[in-house]
Design a protein around this nucleic acid. Structure first.
Lengths: 246, 246
DNA sequence: GAATAATGTGTTAATTTTACACATTAAAGC
DNA sequence: GCTTTAATGTGTAAAATTAACACATTATTC
């Protein structure tokens, strides 16, 4: 008996209900969503992890994930996980890749769709109540439960690529930020040092920064100017790019 | 009762079998793989489509896909579909994205992991026996069954991006090719016209082309030189890039 | 008020990308 | 076989982008 879309071989026109029962009888694969939640604090790129609840991985850290509800969109599942864990919605999120190795999960075949999100740690510092959840330096993570280290690496690489094409990184900063903070963020994500003057030039040229006529407070040195990111302007420009650059 | 990875809320250590039964009882989502198979012929970028076997989409074209076997890797499923439909293995393939809208499939919840592949049409022209399968100009496709138009658009965009970063496109050409053919291919994929001299300069500078001291045969004009693509050299260089450019 | 440490700013060199023209060669047409 | 035609093959100069680099200014700290 052919499988769902293999049917075309015989090429008879099937009724929906025939296919429906095929779907139900054949499928023994569970579907989950895992979230790689990035944050930025103390000039380090961080990722939110939880202690694994499986005996096999006892003591190990893992990404935040959950099974997808049969009636739930994939994006919605990712949002839900994020909301449950951080209390935040309206967060930048992007699908990364789907991981489906046969033995990636000890409980059976679990295929997982991975998303990364970018959140501002300060915003939700108080909302993490579960004391089994912690922020970890991305660059200091050696091992994770399941295949989560591989997933993290893949997501981190995608973030590094994307952040050079689109100014996503602002999602990791508070609304008001100085250029030094912005540069520290980029240096943390890309793991490089950059020239301060060229960095400033580049961002001013992009024309997404709004000078809000405020200065940093309580910094142990000469305070820098504070800026907003103009999301509207960015979205408008992005539309013009579609099909050209990306 | 919490779902698989939601368990961490209560944070008891569960046994595997407890989780296994959760997985089995909860999951009602089918998983498929769809392949966007690109080819290049008559200076046009093509995609391989099959007539839909569903009444709802009768007459409409769709991508080649199939349900994933519970014991089958995702990549393997994509390879299998390709092999079944074209007779080819050892083909360039890349995961694109996973599509999981609730109502994307009339038979129920079917989440599909999408791959694109690049194949050389000449190589396997004789292997497509099923007369319900045809090549279509990518740029002339208006409508497809399911959400396959959206999937195609997404895959095509990803191909366009990737081809500018890595010389993937060679997979679409025969082993021996002229620079004109190569440029026609890039122009077809990117939907642009390019300067012939700059194009040649760029590819010679990459240093992946091997002059095989042969000329085109049976062309209605002055024959051009033929080249091979040096995959080994490319793979070596790619390793040096890792973490720097990509 | 002197020392410190960060902010803020412009110019030049180097590299990369784009634009552009003419001689050469084989096929096609007469 | 001679002419016409249409493509191949090649180099250089301008333009745009990116990288390198130094000093005056300002608030804080001591």
């Amino acid at each position: 008996m052919g499988k769902l879309t293999q049917i075309s071989k015989a090429h008879t026109i099937k009724t929906l209900s025939a296919i429906q029962s095929e779907v139900e009888s054949i499928n023994r694969i569970a579907l989950s969503v895992d979230c790689v939640i990035f944050g930025f604090d103390e000039n380090k790129l961080k990722v939110l992890l939880i202690r694994s609840d499986l005996k096999k991985f006892q003591g190990k850290w893992s990404l935040l994930g959950d099974l997808v509800d049969p009636g739930e969109e994939l994006d919605a599942a990712a949002s839900r996980i994020l909301k449950q864990r951080t209390g935040l919605d309206d967060v930048y999120m992007e699908q990364v890749k789907t991981f489906g190795s046969i033995n990636r999960h000890p409980a059976g075949r679990v295929v997982t769709v991975v998303y990364y999100s970018l959140i501002n740690i300060q915003n939700h510092k108080l909302k993490i109540l579960d004391n089994e959840i912690h922020w970890h330096d991305v660059n200091e993570i050696e091992e994770l439960a399941f295949d989560h280290k591989q997933i993290l690496d893949c997501s981190y690489q995608q973030l590094q690529r994307r952040v050079q094409e689109h100014p996503l990184a602002f999602s990791l900063l508070p609304k008001k930020f100085s250029l030094r903070e912005l540069q520290n963020l980029y240096e943390a994500i890309l793991n490089t040092k950059m020239d301060r003057r060229n960095f400033r030039k580049k961002f001013f040229a992009m024309d997404f920064l709004v000078d809000i006529n405020e200065m940093e407070q309580d910094v142990p040195h000469r305070p820098g100017k504070l800026y907003h990111f103009n999301y509207n302007k960015y979205e408008k420009k992005k539309k013009k790019w579609v099909g050209i650059d990306f």
